[in-house]
């Protein structure tokens, strides 16, 4: 890749990652949310991998922790759902907003998002989904980029 591309790729991917974090955190107010923000962060990581190559990309994370991160995203989502199940009797009940008034106020204040829009657990769910989508898409691209061509293997041997 050319030098100019290498010079501008890192700032662009950092900007993309910051935009993605912004999209995730404002998902309940503005267009966007967990998927979109997570996919934006993943796009930043992918750009950096494509330009600098898999080995010496400045933004990279260890291969061994990928599945742990992915599972944490989905497990967090399920745990928030289980809180609703055990506190209110319905899976994924919005314990923070509590529009049916069926849970104690103490639990509601724990999960209430400090925001005037009364979004309840939606921002937390956004964060978990964003983490999951980001790690999932990056993992697929890392696996694709790390796949060795037949010709390359022959050359190595």
């Amino acid at each position: 890749m050319s030098q100019i591309l290498k010079l501008i790729a890192l700032p662009i991917s950092i900007i993309l990652i910051c935009l993605g974090i912004m999209t995730i955190l404002g998902g309940h107010i503005t267009p966007g949310g967990g998927f979109q923000g997570g996919a934006m962060i993943a796009a930043g990581v992918i750009l950096s991998i494509l330009v600098y190559g898999l080995g010496n990309s400045p933004i990279e994370f260890s291969h061994t922790y990928i599945e742990v991160f992915e599972s944490i995203g989905a497990l967090g989502y399920i745990v928030l759902g289980l809180v609703g199940l055990f506190a209110g009797g319905f899976f994924l009940y919005n314990v923070g907003a509590d529009i049916f008034n069926i849970i104690p106020a103490s639990i509601q204040t724990v999960f209430h998002y400090p925001d005037t829009t009364n979004a309840g657990i939606i921002p937390y769910l956004n964060i978990f989904v964003g983490l999951k989508v980001f790690v999932g898409l990056s993992a697929i691209v890392i696996a694709f980029a790390g796949f060795k061509k037949l010709v390359e293997e022959d050359a190595e041997q």
Partner: peptide
């Protein structure tokens, strides 16, 4: 619940679908 109706639909009314979708990924 939230100002963005699409977010309200995918994370509150149909949050379980979203869980399934992230499991697919």
């Amino acid at each position: 619940i939230a100002p963005n109706m699409v977010t309200a639909v995918i994370f509150d009314f149909r949050g379980y679908d979203t869980l399934g979708e992230s499991i697919i990924l």
